[in-house]
Design a protein around this nucleic acid. Sequence first.
DNA 1: GACCAGGCACATC
DNA 2: GATGTGCATGGT
Length: 213
Amino acid sequence: MPTLEDYFRKLSLHFGPQHWWPGETPFEVLVGAVLTQNTAWKNVEKAIGNLKTFRLLDPHKLHELDEETLQEAIRPAGYFRQKAKRLKAAVAWLVERFGGSMEKAAREETGKLRDELLEIKGIGPETADSILLYALGKPVFVIDTYTYRVLTRHHWVGEETTYEEMQELMQSKLPRDAKLYNEYHALMVAVGKEFCRPQARCERCPLKPYLPG
DNA sequence: GACCAGGCACATC
DNA sequence: GATGTGCATGGT
């Protein structure tokens, strides 16, 4: 019976290094984490490209920016009215709590940061954990729709398992290592995209044979 | 033209 | 507590 570490090795061999998160700075990762909610990354790239073009990809700039202008800039990412509000809320937290510095934020304790992020309207567990892991380097395993699909299809967990339970499973069975969680989650997305779509053909999935279930 | 995409908050029973 | 719905653009 394969272990989660076996899965990691198989995925690494098949897909190679993933170089996640696709963003140049911690703040860009935070912005991307909000914009990618239920949205293809391709669309997020356009939105972030707009922000860069107008030199708006900066905590203080975004904090001062009016919401309508922000909406227009991020329109390609979809749900642009909601996301403008959510981004403003996240940026306000960063500016007011840490003077806009992701480096300062990274020095705060992980559990405290997670609680604070979850209090922000529009930031749920996945967005919070993506920020913690990929922007702040905290050892937190991110569960997303692909991770959920891979774990359930391979019978690691049942369909009804909650976010926190899956996260706890991954973290309890793997060493507490941000680099490992980073690469592992990225690989989950890679295998999920190619082999674990809703109507997927699993024949060539590198994770076969599945666990018995 | 359906279906899907690195979710989340809120309404209603 | 569980179940349903709105949010929106863009690629396949």
